[in-house]
């Protein structure tokens, strides 16, 4: 039994990492009022960039940096389109996704030419903690990106709730006109959050291509970015609850794989539905306070309206 639980928990922790990076970044940009539906596309480009740079330079660290930079650039483009050009955010996100989906496959064709594998980021033991029986090897024997992803949750919470920058983000997301009249530079704040969200989405891609799966293929993310967007809504724009949502989704997924391996006799296509069904059901039945969307979410800012 212990082995089973250990297996499910470690599976869940592995699966949760890309969602966490992407969803925490998206939380920041949504808190400032920008919905970025192009997350999956940015993840794909990030995954490609990390893999390509990793395999050509031999440095995985450079790969992660490249993924962050590429993601940041795409986040900046999204910010330009949705903040400066005031485009419909949902639609520009989908357009960005379509563009990145095609671009990443084309880059794959032209520079990699076929599926290749890489020796990815290795697990790092946290001295002392990794020796704890049962829990130690699960929680403290992971690659660096897993630790960073989890560390992001309290950091994002702190930034959003305890810093002047976080106050600005929330002000801009709740009432940009009031924020503007108080001297907050609404567009600049949104540029910052959406670009940062892009950086995280890029690294989310890297966590797939050079840490979890150690390869790049067209459509490697298979829609993970969209799930990450959904998790932000699940979390009600609060990092800790985003983490809980991501853990719930990943754990149910790990459970259903385990159930299939055990051969429980239910159609696999039905068990595969479970993560999606349970996420909705839990959210619908959960008691939630303060989970109203940022008032200005998806609304472009314009002075004097």
């Amino acid at each position: 039994m212990t082995a089973v639980i250990v297996g499910i928990v470690s599976s869940s922790l592995r699966l949760v990492t890309p969602y966490l990076f992407a969803a925490i970044g998206e939380t920041l940009s949504q808190a400032s009022g920008v919905l970025n539906l192009g997350l999956d596309g940015i993840m794909l480009i990030g995954a490609y960039a990390a893999f390509y740079v990793g395999i050509t330079t031999g440095s995985l660290a450079l790969g992660v940096i490249a993924a962050g930079l590429a993601g940041g650039l795409l986040g900046f483009i999204m910010a330009f389109v949705s903040v400066s050009m005031r485009a419909d955010q949902g639609v520009s996100g989908i357009a960005l996704y379509l563009f990145c989906l095609g671009l990443s496959e084309m880059l794959f064709n032209q520079t990699l030419g076929g599926v290749r594998t890489i020796s990815g980021l290795q697990p790092i033991n946290i001295p002392g903690l990794s020796k704890i029986p049962v829990l130690g090897p699960i929680l403290f024997h992971q690659n660096i990106l897993v630790y960073i992803a989890f560390a992001l949750v309290p950091i994002a919470w702190f930034v959003l709730n305890k810093t002047p920058f976080g106050l600005k983000i929330r002000a801009v997301g709740e009432n940009p006109h009031a924020a503007d009249s108080l001297g907050v530079r609404v567009r600049r704040v949104r540029y910052q959050t959406v670009t940062l969200g892009g950086v995280f989405a890029g690294i989310a891609g890297a966590s797939l291509s050079i840490a979890l799966l150690n390869l790049f293929q067209p459509n490697l993310t298979n829609g993970m970015g969209f799930i990450a967007v959904a998790l932000v809504y699940f979390g009600g724009w609060r990092p800790v609850r985003v983490l809980l949502g991501a853990l719930l989704f990943s754990t149910v997924n790990a459970l259903q794989i385990w159930a299939q391996v055990e051969g429980i006799g239910i159609s696999p296509y039905l068990t595969l539905m479970l993560p999606y069904v349970i996420t909705i059901v839990v959210l619908a039945t959960m008691k939630r306070r303060n989970s109203q969307a940022p008032s200005a979410l998806t609304k472009p800012f314009e002075r004097g309206q």
Partner: peptide
């Protein structure tokens, strides 16, 4: 030519048109 090229250009057109919609 690779089908991905067509996908990328279609996406680019969508992004450009949506992005300049407001203007």
């Amino acid at each position: 030519v690779p089908s991905a090229l067509i996908g990328a250009i279609t996406g680019l057109i969508a992004l450009l048109v949506v992005g300049t919609d407001y203007v």
